[in-house]
Write a protein that binds this DNA or RNA. Structure first.
Lengths: 341, 341
DNA sequence: CTGTTAGCGCCTTCAA
DNA sequence: TTGAAGGCGCTAACAG
């Protein structure tokens, strides 16, 4: 790999001059510029970002940790963040914690060693990253949590307005005449799951529907587990009018259970879920969905990071909490309750 | 951010000693080691990979460029590559070219400037990266192409055995009694699409089914476009017995067209596709699929990269071409032709 | 405008 | 076993 020195030698100028034409920050005479550019092309010179970063102590790099890239929601988030980063001349390192606390910890350490200038973090389900996050923050590396927000931690965060999003979904079901509405959640250790639960509860309360604990099923983000859970429920208790899943993987599991139990939607049971399943509208019937602004979440989170990066010193400023509204995509799976009695 | 010097000062030793305990490469007496470790913990020291890389000229980093992270196939590939990288103590920078030639070019340049030690590349559909790839190779940065393989370029590559995979799919359709089998492809500028086409053709030939050009529809990877294409076909020519889509996004478009045209699978028409659509087996009917070993493709590609990285000098060795077998997941959408005449 | 030079933080001989 | 010192490639003063 050619270095700036080799370029300088070939062009017959000093390294300083080469640096100037590369960065464009200092004027260089036409004549020398042409010579330098020729040398760069001839040697196929590519500035060494590693050296540059060491010198400037700015890597122009952001990191993002997601729990599972294969959940369609996250690639969209990453896209949003990547776009924002790109716009600022930054690049984004996207890594996957596979939802494991240990790996998340290692990744955080790694990103820190790589000297990323900021980190977007979707915490792993069973992790306690508070201490590590606090340390990163102390070290001057801003962090923005997205989607899943750790409790009681003064950190910037961006997510959907969980409670009202869930309430919107439940309201819709109620409006369509469903009354016995089961809720299938992800891990309740995640605060956004809890908030979605609250939204559901509130919606029912306002509609004067008695809360039935038997209809609140706490699952996780592994479709197989959720499928087993739902099958068991479908077989052991009176069938609900409708099921409301609070996230994508959960919905996948629940759909499988419906399949397995020979239940049809919406004829036998209504179905509603958070998060597009890629093909919601191709399913027969098409699935009604609470759609989160995934791209926007990633984008805005990155913007906050840049805000922090810009005015480094002023780190005392209050943590920002952004809650974006979800939207409801009404399709066939909630066509309406067919009271069967 | 504390530096190695600060750790050394606090521990009352030289930087060399600290370096030795951090790397573990040189023995250090118990007493000093303990002091150094205490200092490291106290300062929350994290070795600066940037400086380390500059010194050693090894970044322990790989890059992967995919055309679209939101296509479920690619996150799996990335997972595989990330796992392999992790096993070797490397990290992986995953970036998305959004299938644009320009962006791909910039990303390649970026990765090079970041001094990644190797690159996994899924070329953008309309790109001509030959020259740039050649330059990277010359510069001693190994590249492995995956999934989409550029033609006539002596570069390592890993992908599915396209032709036989497609033939397997077509054979299955034929065995189930389908005869008028439409093929919906992605961009034919992609050689793997061409090879899948060949597999289809060969399968038909061997079954003595006359090739009908009218049944070969060349689409792209934008579902909307493919949907429009298919709708037009469904309305203008005699309905095929079955449709075979050669990739996921194409299948999405085709399914939409079936929906829009009120065609049911498999009653009106059989349906088969490459690539899991996340929920193939939840669809009613469940969709028969040619499944590519996505994770394995990513994993093996990364392994090849490490092979190259290891024995750097010996760059003359022949390019390796790995073709992994696909498997067929038979579900309901190809239940069998119901001859309707 | 152009050249010179001092580090950025770390690893790695090399001596002691 | 430990310490001292050079230099990786680059940028940013600064001097000319």
């Amino acid at each position: 790999m050619p270095t700036i020195k080799e370029v300088a030698d070939l062009a017959g100028v000093s390294v300083g001059t080469v640096s100037h034409v590369v960065s464009g920050s200092v004027p260089v005479s036409e004549a020398l510029r042409v010579k330098v550019e020729a040398a760069i092309r001839q040697l196929d010179y590519h500035p060494n970002h590693v050296a540059r970063s060491l010198k400037t102590s700015r890597t122009r790099t952001l990191g993002i940790i997601v729990p599972d890239m294969t959940i369609p929601f996250y690639p969209l988030v990453i896209r949003g963040a990547e776009t924002a980063a790109w716009d600022h001349g930054y690049s984004l390192i996207a890594v996957d914690s596979t939802d494991e606390a240990d790996r998340q910890k290692e990744l955080l350490t790694l990103l820190r060693s790589q000297r990323v200038e900021g980190i977007l973090l979707v915490v792993a389900a069973a992790s306690e990253p508070m201490l590590q996050i606090a340390r990163l923050l102390e070290a001057g590396i801003p962090i923005v949590c997205l989607d899943r927000i750790p409790e009681k931690l003064p950190v910037d965060s961006v997510s959907v307005e969980d409670k009202s999003a869930a309430a919107m979904g439940a309201d819709h079901l109620i409006a369509r005449g469903y009354r016995r509405i089961a809720l299938v959640t992800g891990p309740v250790s995640l605060t956004n799951e809890t908030r979605r639960l609250h939204g559901y509860e509130e919606s029912l309360r306002e509609a004067d529907i008695a809360l039935d604990r038997e209809l609140i099923w706490h699952g996780n983000v592994r479709p197989e587990d959720v499928a087993a859970l739902c099958r068991e429920k479908f077989r052991s208790i009176a069938l609900p009018d409708a099921v409301f899943c609070t996230n994508g993987p959960t919905a996948l599991g629940c759909l499988r259970a419906l399949c397995d139990c020979g239940l049809n939607t919406p004829d036998d049971i209504g179905f509603l879920t958070f998060d597009e399943l890629t093909v919601d509208d191709l399913f027969r019937p098409a699935i009604t969905t609470v759609v989160q602004p995934a791209y926007e979440i990633g984008f805005q989170a990155a913007e906050i990071l840049f805000d922090r990066i810009q005015r480094k010193s002023d780190e005392a400023s209050e943590p920002r909490t952004i809650r974006l509204p979800a939207s409801l995509k009404v399709r066939e799976s909630t066509r309406g309750a067919m009271r069967r009695e």
